[in-house]
Design a protein around this nucleic acid. Structure first.
Length: 404
DNA sequence: TCTGGGGTCCTAGGACCC
DNA sequence: TCTGGGGTCCTAGGACCC
């Protein structure tokens, strides 16, 4: 009888590996990415071996490990490699679920362990020879178990967990290491004297159903080899968030500029995936951790920020409290409508958002050529966090604001 | 342990209605 | 008008992941 196996593919030190793949001189060297943020976002295994950790400040890395190569993040490349990696996986499995930029799940139907081994090996081989990066693969009957397997031997590993071998693996896996159980969950389960994945797996069903929430119940099933269907395909995002923190201020114009800038960038992303939001959420975070938000419902969904700005300003004025000091703002776009669906009003007229949207198509082309945010809304001018704000030579363009 | 940002999903609790 | 119960819908916020 054939079983449906889950194969989990996980890029090793993904961002750092892509840097090395793009630049052969970096291969085998200690690399850290995140130069633009001043802290390490990803490290190659060589850098990890030296003792570099996630979040470590760059100045410290430079001082302690002068041999480390510091690169700035190149998300366009990471996206590209991610797509290529998924395409290779797609050649060998019947179904692929994209999970994150460096991970995906595939489905394989077979009852032969050798076959699984073979598929795992060929995927690894093709990714290595075509992309110059390595991946770690975990195979098991469920996603949770496949994640246990891929954590087992990193980097460049291939581990299969079968029904027969599952208990050995689970006895040696701390509950906190299980996918879906975080800090709070670990505390709660430890209180019940559940220390390992095996302890959780072995609990009687009645106990799981009377004492625990949905998430733990689902994990319990998956540890027992029973698949829980859940949407892991994040190909179509349900929301686009853009937020940034900045040096604290109570200056209304500056805070609004940050908000406006976030809106512009979120809209650009929405345009790139062809999704128009119906809902726009804005939030302000104050230095005393107050979280103030508002929701805008758009009558005509649009990803032209110029059409949203007037609403944004109105709601912003409502929620802005001048006596507070702020450190962050953000914008969330949600309730998307695909942009190939033309919205018509009651009289069959196309809605009048299209002029603005065409304008932003053009702006997107200009930014592709001259860099992100070569052009931006005048309302974002005061934003300190605008990417590209270090570009030279301001250039005035009538009606649009200023391009830098 | 926190930093920092981009996401998804679930739950508790309030509002509202019958 | 109050009491009570039940259902639904929405939102804020928590938890988790990468």
């Amino acid at each position: 009888m054939n079983h449906t196996w889950v194969i989990h593919i996980d890029g090793d030190a993904f961002f750092a590996s892509v840097e090395a793949a793009n630049n052969p001189r970096l291969r085998g060297k200690p690399i850290v990415t995140g130069h633009e943020r001043g802290i390490a976002t990803a490290m190659s295994y060589q850098a990890k071996a030296l003792g570099v950790t996630r979040g470590m400040p760059m100045f410290q890395i430079r001082k302690l490990f002068p041999q480390v190569i510091i690169a700035k993040s190149d998300y366009d490349s990471y996206e590209l490699y991610s797509k290529r990696m998924i395409n290779i996986v797609r050649r060998h499995v019947s179904e692929v679920h994209e999970y994150s930029i460096d991970e995906c799940f595939g489905i394989v139907l077979t009852d032969k362990l050798e076959k699984l081994q073979e598929i795992g090996k060929i995927i690894k081989k093709e990714i290595r020879s075509e992309l110059y990066i390595t991946v770690t693969i975990g195979i098991a009957l469920t996603r949770v178990l496949a994640k246990v397997a891929s954590k087992w031997h990193k980097p460049d590993g291939l581990t299969i967990i079968t029904t027969e071998t599952a208990d050995e693996f689970l006895m040696r896996t701390q509950i906190g290491a299980i996918w879906g159980i975080g800090r709070q969950g670990t505390i709660a389960l430890r209180d019940d004297d559940i220390q390992t994945a095996y302890d959780l797996k072995s609990l009687p069903r009645e106990l799981i159903y009377t004492n625990y929430h949905k998430r733990v119940r689902e994990i319990w099933h998956e540890l027992n080899g029973q698949k829980v269907e859940r949407d892991t395909d994040h190909t179509h995002s349900k929301s686009i968030i853009r937020s940034r923190s900045f040096p604290q201020t109570n200056n209304k114009e500056i805070v609004f500029a940050e908000l406006s800038n976030n809106l512009e960038i979120a809209c650009k992303r929405a345009r790139s995936v062809g999704l128009k939001p119906r809902s726009v959420y804005l939030f302000l975070k104050s230095t005393d951790y107050r979280y103030i938000r508002a929701e805008i419902s758009l009558i005509d969904p649009t990803y032209a920020p110029s059409l949203i700005i007037p609403h944004l300003r109105k709601y912003f004025i409502d929620i802005f409290e001048p006596e507070l000091s702020y450190k962050s703002t953000g914008v969330t776009l949600a309730s998307f409508v695909p942009d190939h669906i033309g919205l018509q009003d009651l009289f069959g007229q196309m809605t009048n958002t299209t002029d603005h949207e065409h304008l932003f198509d053009t702006i997107d082309q200009i930014s592709d050529k001259f860099g992100n945010n070569a052009i931006h809304l005048a309302s974002s001018m005061n934003s300190k966090t605008r990417s590209g704000s270090f570009s030279p030579k301001p250039l005035c363009i009538p009606f649009l604001g200023v391009a830098i």
